[in-house]
Structures are given as C-alpha cells and as structure tokens.
Design a protein around this nucleic acid. Structure first.
Lengths: 200, 200
DNA sequence: CTCACATCGAACTGATCGGTACCATCTGAG
DNA sequence: CTCAGATGGTACCGATCAGTTCGATGTGAG
C-alpha cells in the first residue's frame, strides 16, 4: 500500500476530524502525561499528520487547553447529573461518591486528569482549569450541605471536597480501590454530625 | 575574574558537595517540577558542573531518587515527631494537622513533592516512594485510631488519610489556606463519632 | 613536596522537542 | 467538471534534552 496524502475512502469533515483528534489526544495525554508524549508521537498514535493537528489547535498548548476544557465539562456534568438524581441531600452526597467509585474503578484510571495536568504544568493554564473544577465541586457539595441543614454549610462543603479530592489521590497513588467507599462513609458521618443542633 | 576549574578558596569535601547538591536540587526540582528543568540549567543554578553531578548521582533519575528518598525521610520524621509529642490520640491527631497547616503556609508551598513527582513520572520509581509515604501515614493514623478506641481503626485510619491527602491538594490547587484547619476539625469529628459505641 | 582526586568549563554526541514548509493527493461543494 | 480546501507524508528548523569526554586547575592527604 502506498501512503497517500488523503486515504481513498476518507471522510474529510473538519469538525469531525477535530473531534476525533480531541478524543484520541485526551486518552493519550492522560495516560502518558502532558510531557510524556511529543507532538510527533502523538500524531503518529492518533493517525494524523502534524499539519492537521496544528491547523486545528494551533499549538500543543492549544490542544491541551481544549482537552482539559472538554474533560472539565464532562466531569462537571457527571457530578451534576448524580446530584440531580438524588432525592434528598443524603442521597445526593452518596450518589456523588458512588460516581467517584465508578470512576476510580475504570481500568485505565490514573487520577484526575485535570489535577494531574495542573501538577505537571504548575504555572500554566491547566491551573486555572483545576481551580474551576474545584470551584464547581465545592459549589455542589456546599449546596448539599446547605440543603441538609448544616449549621455551617460552607465549612462542611470544604470538608466534603477534601474527602472527595483525597479519595481520588489515594485511589491512584495508593491503589486503594475502596477509597471512594470509605470517603463516602466519612462524608455521610460528617453530614449527620453537622446538623443545626450539632456542636461545632 | 577568570573561570577556574576549582575556585581559589574551595572546600573540596565530596560528602559535603553531595549534600549541597542534594539540598539545592530538592528546591529546584520541587519548584519547577521534575521535567521542568534540565540537567544543564539545574547545574548552572546550583553552581556546579555537570561532571560533578554525574559523578555523585550517576544520572538525573538517580538524583531524583535520592532527592525523593531524603524528602520522604524528612516528611515521615516530621509527622512522627508530632505524634510522639501528643499526650492522647486526640492531641496526636490535632498535632498531625497542625504540622500540615504549617507546611501549607510555607511561602513556596507547591503541594507534596513526592505525590507531585509520582504524578509527573507515573510509571517511574517516584510511584514507589509515594506508596511508601502513604503507607507510613496510614500506619500513623491507624495507630491513632486504634489508641482512640475506634471500633474499626483500619477504616478510620484510611478516612483520616483521605482528609490529610485531600487537604494538601486543596491547599495547593485551590489556594485554600485553611484546608488543614478544616480537615483537622473533620478529622476530630470523625474520631469522636467512631468510638466503640458509635454506629457504623 | 608530591600526587591522587575533586572540580570547572567547554565542547561534543545523538536524540527528541515544538513548530513550519512543501507537495502530492484526495474529498466535497459549486 | 472544476477548484478550493482538507489531509498525509516528509523533510527541515533551531532549541533543548541527558549524558560523555577532556584538559586545566585547584585542594587535600601522604
């Protein structure tokens, strides 16, 4: 077979090409780390030419930014859906940690892609995405805390976010498959003991 | 001034040179990330030649390994001392999170160097150091849980480790200066509600 | 005093980095 | 049918990467 500039039965839809690159790059950059794979190998693994990548994303940083933005939207929506499906605050909180447990159990789980990216490029734009992600999660958990009647929802929200975040780190770096389950039980215990009549 | 191979009043003690390189590299690799600075710049910033670095550490990975090992020992000893100084389990747990708060407040705090390294080189030896660190902390916290009379010390230990780990991530990526304080209160609440008579 | 050794500084290697340019080739819209 | 545009493939650029080598020059122990 000859290597032709455009394969015989190619589809040639820019938007679709872009989406395919985004999907493939999301996986590769997550598995190997932002600096763990160069543009050349990245393109080779995706099956596109460098020129195509640079036409769609401008630079590697541009690609990374779009990958992280898309990941942020997916993660945020995932937790939003879990909360929306819960009947009461306790159910909602449990649902959040159940989503977490399913995430940790995914075969190629390697920690939170966005927090990993912010750690790798500590001064770069990934840091802003990470802050957005944590802001969103804090809002979500603080809302649950408030609806549960906690005397200090802001504080309980932060404590719940601490459990959520820590569990993801332990699932990754400590091989703790039950991290989300243990965190869930701790979160529910905190929720129970943080009611309006509870001592601070 | 001429750049002389060995400066006029140099000290020329290999062990001391090695320790100085280790100290300087610890700071630089922490601030810029493992892949954020090359060997050439690293040596220039430290003020040594590449040959000196390679004679003492063999490779960049060798240097990183030694830096992480030293950091691990320092962190472990720091928490051990805090626990040793506590009178009862509650004091000990509070002391652990107080150490955490002081750490987070250091001017150049950038997260846990070891967990950051494990995130950056996810498949490398840094991962083993991170696992050792978390093992040690888990032992410490499980011990506190056991001495407090918790009905399930292993579980409480993991939950406390989740709070400790999550607080460090939030202090870094969320600019949460009070992360350790909030985590401490949550930890103490969990400790109180996990006694032998508490419901699971 | 002598000499092994530590160190510096610089040059060098081969590989890889992100990014650009060019062209042949194919698709898809007019 | 025609032609703009999307794509693959390849070569290339300057910079940086980790690591090696060598000679000049100093220190420190005998």
């Amino acid at each position: 077979m000859c290597g032709m500039p455009v394969p015989k039965g190619a589809v040639l839809d820019p938007a679709q090409t872009r989406a395919a690159i985004l999907d493939a790059a999301t996986v590769l950059l997550y598995q190997r780390g932002l600096d763990g794979i160069g543009v050349a190998k990245l393109c080779a693994a995706i099956g596109i030419s460098k020129e195509t990548l640079y036409r769609h994303f401008g630079s590697k940083d541009g690609l990374v930014q779009d990958v992280l933005d898309a990941r942020h939207d997916r993660l945020a929506r995932s937790l939003d859906d879990a909360v929306d499906a819960g009947a009461d605050p306790t159910d909602q909180l449990a649902a959040v940690f159940d989503v977490l447990a399913r995430w940790h159990a995914e075969p190629d789980f390697r920690g939170c892609a966005i927090l990993n990216a912010a750690t790798q490029h500590h001064a770069g734009p990934a840091r802003a995405v990470a802050a957005r992600l944590l802001d969103h999660r804090l809002d979500l958990l603080t809302g649950i805390a408030a609806r549960s009647g906690a005397s200090d929802p802001a504080r309980l929200g932060r404590q719940l976010l601490t459990l959520l975040t820590g569990a993801t780190v332990l699932a990754d770096h400590h091989g703790d498959a039950d991290a989300a389950e243990h965190a869930k039980q701790a979160a529910l215990a905190l929720l129970r003991s943080a009611g309006p009549t509870a001592t601070l």
